[in-house]
Amino acid sequence: MTLLYTGLAVFLLLNLLVGLMRVYFGPTAADRMLAALLFGTTTVAVLLLLAEAMALSALRDVALLFTLLAAVVALAFTRLPRRFKGR
């Protein structure tokens, strides 16, 4: 099983890195934020897999923190000013 976990972790990490293109090219701020959120989820999955693969249960706590605080960034993002409406 460990091999599977590791392989999946590699696969998810690769997904994440490929997805970075969306952050790079945008085009809107919302696109970038979306990608960032997806990566948050991906990271949680990676951490869960690593917790099993490395037999480090504390990594689940890390994943827990990520999910708990995932909304903070999104909220901070939407608190950006409305001023660039129409640009």
């Binding site: 990271t43 990594l59 706590d61 923190l65 990520f66 605080l69 903070v72």
Partner: peptide, 25 residues
């Protein structure tokens, strides 16, 4: 996010936890 994973890979869950809380929050 990736830093937290890196700490996790270095078997430093304490740091990964801190990174998660500080980085994400």
């Amino acid at each position: 996010l990736l830093m937290a994973v890196a700490w996790a890979r270095l078997a430093a869950p304490d740091l990964a936890l801190a990174e998660a809380a500080i980085g994400a929050g």
